[in-house]
């Protein structure tokens, strides 16, 4: 009996907190700022989340552990915030940890995943999680019931299901090959949760961005092969533009070598930023590839903060000790750098 009461009161608390969150956006320590996902040490380590406060220019490291008194899990791949909840995709732990975005208190865990990569919120009830699947070659998108944090459906897509982009009632999924190679972008009908089209692309499309004209830009990494001493380009990288209505490729830029990714846009969505061959380039959506790099540095993750119009570059370092990110202005000049956790790979700007 006693446990019943406890359970009911637990439900009541849950209900209360839910209804409260629906009424108004709650505020807390982490209401405004930048979340940095740090992969953590491979094999035995844990991923961590750092929080950067833009006003005080201070970083608080490992906020998940601090708030919840437990490690997050091995290899934090990405952070996404949807409906005031932060979804922390923990790749090697095969789970997504769900926390309240404003104070990072744990609310649940999504399990039943295999090498999950990214989360995309669809509406109040539904979310998508891309994953590489067993062996890193069984790419799919898992449909998640956000009320129960459970998988309700699996949509098979190409190898290495990676980034997802919602455009009207479609979701574009770039499939970067996982532990193999792939040359397709999948289009999912988000009402039916089914693949409605596949778009043939150059090799290994890995990141996506939407521009001001509602066009979808895709970076395709190209393909390389290990010849025994170095990795040589088999097919070069390409940057393509897709018309989301017709699913047709409308424009195509070819690079010399392989190695293109981390596509982000500026606030007005008319400039693209991406990494190519260990450098960062910017490109106006109406012009061609620039030969002059914006930043001569290799980043493990790239982000654009629309609130301050700054470019953030994550330095992975040695993957075993704490590292940093650097902030740049839009002309590529470094402003400052902040120390974060082990192997930072991405940002969420809030």
């Amino acid at each position: 009996m006693k446990s019943n009461y406890l359970f009911i009161s637990f439900l009541a608390v849950l209900f209360f907190s839910c209804s409260k969150s629906e009424d108004a956006t709650p505020t807390g320590k982490y209401s405004s700022g930048v979340f940095i996902s740090n992969e953590g040490q491979f094999q035995t380590g844990t991923g961590t989340v750092s929080f950067f406060n833009r006003e005080s220019k201070t970083v608080e490291n490992d906020i998940f552990q601090t708030v919840n008194n437990r490690p997050l899990g091995n290899i934090l791949q990405s952070i996404e915030i949807h409906n005031n909840k932060a979804y922390l995709v923990v790749n090697n732990a095969k789970k997504v940890e769900v926390v309240q975005a404003w104070d990072f208190k744990e609310v649940g865990t999504i399990q039943g995943l295999e090498m999950p990569r990214y989360f995309l919120g669809i509406d109040d009830k539904k979310g998508y999680i891309s994953q590489w699947g067993v062996g890193g070659i069984d790419g799919s998108v898992k449909v998640i019931d956000l009320q129960t944090n459970t998988v309700t459906k699996t949509i098979q897509v190409g190898k290495g299901a990676e980034k997802m982009l919602k455009v009207d009632n479609k979701v574009f999924v770039s499939c970067n090959g996982g532990f193999s190679n792939e040359n397709r972008v999948f289009v999912i009908d988000l009402q039916k949760d089914e693949v409605s089209a596949t778009i043939s692309t150059p090799d290994n499309p890995n990141s996506l961005a939407l521009d001001v004209n509602n066009s979808v830009w895709v970076t395709c990494n190209g393909r390389s092969q290990w010849n025994g001493t170095a990795s040589v380009t088999v097919s070069p990288a390409q940057l393509i533009r897709i018309n989301p209505t017709t699913n047709q490729i409308e424009q195509n830029f070819t690079f010399e070598k392989h190695g293109l990714g981390s596509l982000v846009t500026n606030k007005s969505k008319n400039t693209l930023f991406y990494s190519y061959s260990g450098r960062v380039f910017s490109q106006n959506i109406n012009s061609g590839i620039s030969t002059n790099p914006l930043i001569i540095k290799s980043f493990y993750g790239l982000g654009y903060d629309a609130a301050t119009d700054m470019l953030y570059g994550a330095i992975a370092g040695n993957f075993s000790t704490n590292s940093k990110f650097i902030r740049f202005n839009i002309s590529g000049a470094a402003i400052d750098s902040m120390n974060v956790g082990v192997a930072p790979n991405g940002f969420y700007f809030k």
Binding site: T44, G45, L72, N74, N92, K94
Partner: peptide, 12 residues
């Protein structure tokens, strides 16, 4: 012949 167990931070 040894199995290699997961860590606390990995799933399985």
């Amino acid at each position: 012949d040894r199995q290699v167990p997961p860590t606390l931070t990995t799933a399985s």
